[in-house]
Amino acid sequence: MEIRLTDEQMELFQQKAKNYHDNKTAMIIDAVAQFNDIRTRRKIEVMTKLMTFYQQYEQRLGWLGGNFNQTMKRANELAVAGKLEQSYFEMEIIPRVDEIQPLIQELKDYLTNLSEKTF
C-alpha cells in the first residue's frame, strides 16, 4: 500500500504512530476501525441529547402532576367549605380530571418504561 502525505501530514502521522510503539500498521487498522464507528458515535451523541431532553421532560411532567394534585386538593377543600358549588365541582372539574389523569399517568408510565429499557 502506498500513501502520499505532505511533510506536515507525515510528521503528524509519525507522532501519532509513537502511541502505537511505531507500529504504523496497528495505528492504521485502529484508525479504520474508529472511522467506521463515526456513525455510531453520532448516534450516541444524539441519544445523549435525547436523554437530557427526556430528563427535563420527566421533571416537568412531575411538576405538572404535583401542581395538578395540589389544584384538585384545593378545589375539593373549597367545595367542602361551601366556597365552590358542589355541583360545579362534580359536573365540571371531576370530568376534566377523569380525562387528564389517565393521560398524565400514561406519559409517566411510558417514560418509566423507556428509562428502564435504556439504562
Rank of each mutant, 00 (worst) to 15 (best):
Q86G: 14
I28T: 11
F35H: 06
R42M: 14
I3F: 03
S115I: 15
Q86H: 06
Q70L: 08
D98I: 12
E58L: 14
E77R: 02
T52F: 15
A31V: 11
K83Y: 14
L84E: 00
G66F: 03
R41V: 06
N67K: 05
I94W: 01
L12S: 05
A17Q: 01
N36I: 07
H21V: 07
Q14K: 11
E11R: 12
M91H: 09
P102L: 05
Q34L: 07
N113S: 10
E77G: 08
D98N: 10
Q101M: 07
T6Y: 08
G66D: 11
T6E: 03
D22A: 05
K24A: 09
I38T: 01
S87M: 10
F35Q: 14
V46H: 12
E99T: 15
F13N: 01
N19C: 14
R39F: 14
L84T: 02
E92R: 11
T25D: 10
Y20M: 02
Q56P: 08
N19L: 04
Q15P: 03
I94G: 01
L50N: 08
K43W: 07
M10E: 12
T118R: 04
T112W: 14
A33W: 04
M91Q: 08
I94Y: 06
N76D: 02
Y88W: 04
V32M: 01
Q70A: 08
Q9T: 01
N23Q: 11
L84R: 00
R96W: 02
M91E: 14
R74E: 04
R60D: 06
F89T: 00
N67A: 10
A79T: 00
E8M: 13
M72E: 00
Y20G: 04
G62K: 03
Q70I: 00
Y88G: 02
I3Y: 01
A75G: 01
N67P: 06
L107P: 15
T40I: 13
R39V: 09
Q55K: 12
A75W: 01
Q34E: 10
E92T: 10
A33T: 03
E99H: 09
G65N: 02
Y110H: 13
K73P: 06
D30P: 12
D98Q: 11
P102A: 00
F13T: 01
G82C: 02
G62V: 07
Q9D: 03
M27V: 06
L103N: 03
S115V: 15
V32S: 01
V46F: 13
W63V: 15
P95I: 03
N69E: 07
A31C: 12
Q86L: 05
